[in-house]
């Protein structure tokens, strides 16, 4: 917007050119910035502050203490440690499942569809036009005692009693999450596959690479940015999910999110809930950092992430 003044300070009036360029940029992002501050930074700071307070009966006592965090490292806090590890593990499984499912879908769209790609993309997102809750309920119907799978198998005569392991366990949570987040994984992978210069592939073939070798030497490395983005996009939000475990998790499928909700509701201990949230954010950050470190900086740079 202000390129002229910036590139040629002699032109334009003195007052304008004296104003630093970043200030003009700042004005542009003020609306967004206000929303981010109001809706994210303030509540986040609130969570951190409350996590250092204590709940006594019905009141929150505003004296600084580390007790909420200390609890997590005592035998009493074993419950939360188990839940945190379990949640990270369940999300990781769900993320791997999502990416393994999404990659072939994205590949198909990027390389096999010639015409009307937009229609395919829209078709892919159709299930996501309904609410998240409805999708979970749909899975409850599919996996349920008298659900689609059970009644189907019964009709064919493969089983005479409904399979009970389908619903209300960690696996059913993973299955539901894997479907619910599929679109978030397909789209970024698709974009990075679509960007690949087709002449590289031709060159590889010309130089004698088999299809399989060509995929691992060219297509896969170049699709890494999208794949990494997909992994992060799915992993981070699913760790804190609590509504999916509530509906399809049964007695054994609960996650840390459920425990945090309980602290703010039934258990009436907002400071402990806040501390748990902070620990969880920290744990996710560490997990993501570890993941990025494992991929390696060099590779990331090469992938231009």
């Amino acid at each position: 917007m202000n390129t002229q003044t910036a590139t040629n300070p002699a032109v334009g009036d003195a007052a304008l050119s004296a104003r630093p360029e970043w200030l003009d940029g700042l004005w542009l992002i003020v609306p967004t910035l206000l929303i981010v501050i109001g809706m994210m930074v303030v509540p986040l700071v609130g969570i951190v502050v409350v996590s250092f307070w204590t709940q006594t009966g019905f009141n929150i006592e505003a004296t600084w203490t580390l007790d909420n965090y200390r609890v997590l490292f005592t035998p009493e806090g074993a419950l939360y440690r188990i839940l945190i590890v379990k949640s990270l593990w369940m999300s990781l499984t769900a993320t791997i499942a999502v990416v393994l499912l999404a990659y072939p879908m994205a590949y198909f769209m990027a390389f096999r569809i010639e015409r009307a790609k937009l229609i395919w993309i829209i078709l892919l997102t159709v299930p996501f036009w309904t609410s998240y809750l409805l999708r979970i309920f749909a899975w409850k119907v599919i996996l349920g005692f008298n659900g689609v799978i059970n009644s189907g198998l019964k009709a064919v005569g493969l089983i005479d009693k409904p399979l009970e392991f389908l619903l209300y366990n960690p696996t059913s949570v993973t299955i539901t999450l894997a479907h619910a987040w599929a679109a978030y994984a397909v789209l970024p992978i698709y974009v990075s596959l679509e960007k690949i210069d087709r002449s590289y592939l031709e060159a590889a073939t010309d130089l004698g690479d088999s299809k399989w070798k060509r995929f691992w030497r060219i297509t896969f490395p170049l699709s890494l940015p999208g794949t990494i983005a997909a992994i992060l996009l799915v992993f981070i939000p699913t760790v804190g999910d609590y509504i999916t475990p509530t509906l399809v998790g049964g007695t054994s499928g609960i996650m840390i999110g459920n425990s945090i909700v309980t602290q703010f509701g039934k258990a009436n201990n907002a400071p402990l809930g806040a501390a748990l949230s902070c620990i969880m954010m920290l744990a996710i950050t560490l997990a993501v950092c570890a993941f990025l470190a494992a991929i390696g900086r060099k590779r990331l740079k090469a992938a231009d992430l």
Partner: peptide
């Protein structure tokens, strides 16, 4: 109530 609540949470979480 708080103790009972926590106990039941622990049962549910499997700790």
């Amino acid at each position: 109530v708080d103790k009972v609540q926590k106990l039941f949470e622990e049962v549910k979480a499997g700790a």
